[in-house]
């Protein structure tokens, strides 16, 4: 078996989400080929740890900046010279643009958001209905698999020291779409889908400005702040912060729900978190039924007290 893995990296190092994919491929005994794009894709420092045979880097032309279209073209070119049975990536926005197109172009099968994965023999599961249930994924034998795995779901095995792979250059073109601007964004905190600790706020915060209490709490933990649909619909915070069936489905180690009652569509998006803490004034709030620990109380008193406790951990 031969596997192509699309790498994500930051500051010259492989992201954890990518290390999860390398662990899965390594455990299967497959030959591993990798590809990465953008500035620094040819200078990732920890490539030698994973038994990678060959690494393709696309750093110039249309591949210099984010371009789903150029990435698709480039991976298609790599697959033309490397006959891979499986193509693996993390479930990111750009990969969700690229992988479905590749599946069509190469007559393969595509599935995203896997939360469990073994390659030999193939076994995978994923959430359905935004986490209200899960299902096993079956793919017909002999069909090329284009698989996206949700970050933070699989284990990472200790990297082994080894020789850095041969690095080849790949190019890709974008003729239909052009990225004209990239703005904003924070590299300080992880995206909700990658975060290990999430602190979410709901209507119980009473007003938009009170989210500051949650940011204060998140800061010493390096946590990411999320929100319920109710407060997104009220315009307090952007939709990118919404956790739930019409927002993001998350599964951190620790999820702290502040002033969130626990509507079914919110629960769907966070119920597979390892530990859930609910803080709510209403002891009958449904969120407590899904939580590991519960505090009935005033978030405006408890949040500052928790912030002090979290700071003391440092």
């Amino acid at each position: 078996m031969k596997v192509l893995i699309c790498l994500d990296f930051q500051d010259g190092h492989l992201k954890n989400s990518t290390q999860e994919l390398l662990t899965v491929a390594g455990a299967s005994g497959a030959e591993i080929i990798t590809v990465a794009f953008g500035n620094g894709a040819d200078k990732i420092s920890d490539l030698g740890d994973w038994g990678i045979q060959k690494h393709y880097a696309g750093t110039s032309g249309a591949l210099a900046k984010p371009s789903p279209e150029a990435y698709t073209d480039a991976i298609h070119k790599v697959l033309a010279s490397e006959n891979c049975d499986v193509v693996l990536g993390s479930s990111t926005t750009v990969n969700k643009d690229v992988f479905p197109r590749l599946a069509i172009r190469m007559d393969g099968a595509f599935i995203s958001d896997l939360t469990e994965l073994k390659l030999a023999p193939f076994a995978a599961r994923r959430p359905m209905y935004a986490g209200k249930c899960t299902a096993a994924v079956n793919i017909k034998d002999g069909v090329k698999k284009f698989l996206l795995v949700r970050p933070n779901q699989l284990t990472i095995s200790n990297p082994k020291k080894g020789r850095a792979p041969e690095v080849a250059t790949v190019d890709g073109a974008a003729t239909g779409t052009e990225l004209t601007d990239v703005a904003g964004g924070s590299t300080k905190t992880l995206d909700l889908t990658e975060a290990n600790i999430i602190i979410s706020g709901g209507r119980g915060l009473k007003e938009a400005d009170k989210f500051k209490l949650l940011y204060d709490m998140a800061e010493p933990l390096g946590a990411t702040v999320g929100a319920s649909r109710a407060v997104v619909d009220l315009g307090w915070v952007p939709h990118s912060m919404q956790v739930g069936q019409t927002g993001k489905t998350v599964a951190p180690s620790l999820y702290i729900a502040c002033g969130i009652s626990g509507a079914i569509q919110h629960i769907a998006g966070m119920s597979s978190s390892k530990v859930i803490v609910a803080i709510n004034t209403d002891e009958k709030a449904p969120i407590f039924q899904k939580s590991t620990y519960g505090i009935v109380g005033d978030i405006f008193e408890i949040a500052p007290a928790l912030t002090e406790e979290f700071k003391a951990l440092k």
Binding site: P66, T92, T93, V94, G176, T177, E178, L179, T180, D181, V182, A183, G184, G185, S186, T187, T189, L190, D191, T193, E194, P238, H239, S240
Partner: peptide, 17 residues
């Protein structure tokens, strides 16, 4: 001209015909 938000709150702007 299409705007979209990707991971980490980054806004990308694409031009397409």
């Amino acid at each position: 001209t299409i705007k979209r938000e990707v991971e980490g709150g980054t806004m990308e702007t694409y031009k397409v015909n």
